[in-house]
């Protein structure tokens, strides 16, 4: 029998995004509200001065949340429904499963991303080249978070633990770090701590592209190199160490 890989990818998208949104639409509200709530607070407190950074922060949070959601969703399907066991004992392709699950997270976040992109167009007015740069930075953010999420998912055996990690990492990497505000607001020496988070580099790139943060060309190149390198290293680590089945 000839097996369709595109069907396998689509199956993950249907299960983890389309049917969940269709059958439980309340989840959509939560997905949209999370990044927008921070945006509203930042805009209100800064009296509109940080609206650009807040929109960029919302986009970064959405992308990071996608990766963390992947962790929770894969763990949930694996541990609570034993879906992964059913798929291991079948011709399902692990790569198609994971690619589909990753794509489903983006599709799940499309409503939030759509609103944020419209707001970006209205308040930040990026040109075509800037839009490509912003898109590339967000893609690297997504790759990084999805690999972190997948790594945690393969190691997790308890859904409560998975959701706890998901919330903790999202808070640390998107709410505390300078994602919704410029890094210059953090006093030294604490500013160095912010560079432990991959979201800081993406935020610097996006804020610099949007013109709300003045960075030297060298600093921007360094940010691109670090986030690109980190995504590549994590991809290699995950592809080598992720467990599809037990040893």
């Amino acid at each position: 029998m000839r097996r369709s890989h595109s069907s396998q990818v689509l199956a993950s998208i249907l299960v983890n995004a389309v049917y969940e949104m269709k059958n439980y639409p309340i989840n959509l509200v939560n997905t949209v509200l999370s990044p927008l709530s921070f945006l509203v607070v930042i805009d209100f407190v800064s009296k509109g001065a940080l609206i650009g950074q807040a929109i960029e922060g919302g986009l970064i949070m959405s992308m990071f949340q996608s990766g963390m959601s992947l962790q929770g969703d894969i763990s949930h399907l694996k541990n609570d429904f034993k879906l992964q066991d059913m798929l291991v004992s079948s011709p399902a392709s692990p790569a198609a499963y994971v690619i589909g699950m990753a794509a489903s997270e983006i599709i799940y976040n499309l409503p939030a991303l759509g609103i944020l992109i419209v707001l970006m167009g209205v308040y930040v007015h990026p040109g075509a080249f800037q839009a490509i740069e912003l898109g590339a930075a967000l893609f690297l953010m997504f790759l990084t978070s999805i690999t972190i999420g997948f790594m945690f998912a393969t190691l997790s055996s308890d859904i409560v633990q998975s959701f706890a990690w998901s919330r903790l990492l999202t808070t640390i990497f998107t709410a505390i770090t300078p994602v919704y505000y410029p890094i210059t607001y953090i006093p030294f020496p604490f500013r160095y701590l912010a560079y432990l988070s991959p979201t800081t580099y993406v935020a610097e790139i996006m804020q610099s592209v949007a013109g709300s943060l003045n960075l030297s060309e060298g600093a921007v190149i360094t940010d691109w190199a670090i986030i690109g390198g980190l995504a590549a290293v994590l991809l290699v680590v995950v592809s080598r160490n992720a467990r599809w089945k037990e040893a």
Binding site: S7, Q8, V15, Y19, N23, F81, L83, M86, P91
Partner: peptide
């Protein structure tokens, strides 16, 4: 094909959606 000991149907889906997607995962 296997139905493991603690397998459960996915709560947010219907039997038709569950069967359809399982077959799609099989290709």
């Amino acid at each position: 094909a296997i139905v493991p000991q603690e397998a459960r149907t996915i709560s947010w889906m219907t039997p038709k959606q569950s069967t359809l997607t399982y077959l799609m995962w099989r290709g």
